[in-house]
Design a protein around this nucleic acid. Structure first.
Length: 462
RNA sequence: GCGGCUAUGGUGUAACGGUUAACACUGGAGCUUGUGGAGCUCUCAAUCCGAGUUCGAUUCUCGGUAGCCGCCCCA
């Protein structure tokens, strides 16, 4: 009854049941066969076998990413650009564990508790402690600053590139794990501190080779909004509805936005007004310095977060991606839950995912070049040892060299080098070893350079 | 948490409900005794999971799961 098993067998040899069925027109016979004890037993055995053969999925966990070298190089490029830019302005890097006690995120009230329960990775450890994978870095850095407030020295310029986790449904630009540059300037109320942070955001965009036309930084003010709310005599509920409406503004067309405002009982011209003097001054100074894509926009609120002063968001000017790339602002009471004396701060955070999307759309991601500079192909396995020795000498002189073991055909070895995007190839065989002259080939251009052994390292180090 | 679309080898695609699930690329072996992207030969490899309808399901229905897109949320 081979065909009983056909469906389960890996390679079907023989006749299919449906084909036989059409020939025979004897369904009863097959019904009998299928229900026979022997075939039923065999079927069960095969099914069991299939189960034990089941392989693990190669998919990464939901909402997280694997980074193969080329992708990791892009991530590293983003990190390097971040680091280079903020360190130029005096920011220094800190790090902490991804594990935090859950209280850290729940402390601010029931609303936060709900967020922790529903949108974080939280578990109980063996010591009955409730632990959360950090969903953001700000509480951590607030804790660190509060812990050593008296010895740190202000103004304090800190940055970090932590991976952060959130438990929610992945979608475009939002995964369950991402890396987030956090830049914070603690301990100064100066409007120049606000300006420095906005300026760093600007410089980061420029460091990624974005032009001023590619993005715009919109600056708003919670102080301005609070004053407005007071003038309009908004209660807490209407104020929240107002902010929510402002937050959604980017997604709405002008008429829908006006309608929403009217729903709350606000005039449609409610957002017309002059910026606070410090912000007007900041924008003017940027403009004087030749930077013209930083503008006043009172509709910027940055959600219901802890911001208390200047707030800003960086927008992609591409109409197809009109969402905010990232943003930040001033907060005044961040360390309040640890310490009586508040430490003020201004800062921002930006994620690697949105940054990568931005760069990809604008073709600003640099081409992948592996750290390996040279691949040595070997004409026979017997010469592998000598090739290793030569490679060792080159490494001593600072060249990154990978060596083939010579157990594949020369052509295939070259293919491997090419597949790995290694820029240069060199063949080591009897001829080269006896003559002491080696040919280095550029695998992109095909250009070959003949070099004596003692000139090899120089070729790569120049 | 809610909604829409999708799900076939590693990748990209194909298959009126009916023959052994096809093709290309990729991987492996070779044709080729030391020089890559070519050609040829051989080869590995798949219908997301579970029910249902049917003589028969990759195909139709339902449920689950996953991916993408949107909503909610966005610290």
């Amino acid at each position: 009854c081979g065909f009983c098993l056909r469906k389960r067998s890996r390679r079907s040899r023989g006749v299919s049941p449906s084909f036989l069925y059409r020939l025979t027109t004897l369904p009863d016979m097959f019904a009998a066969l299928f229900s026979s004890p022997i075939s039923a037993t065999l079927y069960t055995i095969m099914a069991e076998k299939d189960k034990t053969r089941q392989k693990l999925s190669t998919e990464p966990y939901k909402g997280v990413r694997d980074f193969y070298p080329a992708e990791y190089a892009t991530l590293s490029y983003i990190f390097d650009t971040w680091r280079k830019t903020v360190e130029k302005v005096g920011y220094v890097e800190y790090e902490a564990s991804i594990l935090e006690p859950s209280e850290l995120y729940k402390a601010k009230g029931a609303e936060n508790e709900e967020m922790v329960n529903e949108q974080t990775y939280t578990f109980v450890d063996r010591g009955e402690r409730e632990v959360t994978l950090r969903p953001e870095m700000t509480p951590t850095v607030a804790r660190m600053v509060a812990a050593k407030r008296r010895e740190l020295g202000f103004p304090l310029r800190y940055y970090s590139i932590p991976n952060v986790f959130r438990y929610e449904r992945p979608q475009r630009g939002r995964l369950r794990e991402h890396w987030q540059l956090n830049v914070d300037l603690f301990g100064s109320h100066s409007p120049y501190a606000d300006a420095e942070i906005v300026g760093v955001a600007y410089e980061i965009m420029r460091a990624f080779k974005a032009t001023e036309d590619d993005f715009v930084i919109k600056v708003g003010s919670r102080v301005w909004l609070d004053k407005l709310a007071k003038e309009l005599e908004l209660d807490k509920k209407r104020e929240q509805a107002f902010y929510r409406c402002l937050d959604a503004k980017g997604k709405l067309d002008a008429d829908t936005f006006k309608a929403k405002l009217e729903e709350i009982g606000l005039p449609s011209n409610v957002l017309i007004g002059e910026p606070p003097a410090e912000i007007a001054n900041m924008i003017k100074e940027f403009s004087d310095a030749g930077i013209n894509n930083i503008v006043w926009d009172p509709s910027i609120v940055r959600g219901f977060a802890y911001y208390t002063g200047m707030v800003f968001e960086v927008f992609d000017t591409n109409p197809q991606n009109s969402r905010a790339l990232f943003g930040g602002g001033r907060y005044d009471n961040l360390t309040a839950m640890f310490d009586d004396e508040a430490v003020t701060g201004v800062g921002f955070g930006m994620g690697d995912v949105t940054m990568r999307d931005f760069l990809e759309v604008r073709r600003l991601v640099p081409a992948y070049v592996p750290p390996t500079q040279l691949y040595i192909a070997v004409t026979s396995p017997e010469l592998a040892g000598q090739a290793q020795t030569l490679a060792g000498e080159l490494r001593q002189q600072g060249v990154n060299v990978a060596v083939d073991f010579g157990d594949k055909k020369l052509g295939d070895q070259i293919k491997t080098a090419s597949k790995h995007s290694i820029p240069y190839l060199m063949v080591v065989g009897d001829n080269e070893l006896s003559s002491g002259t080696f040919v280095v080939r550029n695998l992109t251009t095909g250009e070959e350079t003949s070099l004596a052994k003692h000139d090899l390292a120089n070729f790569f180090l120049k």
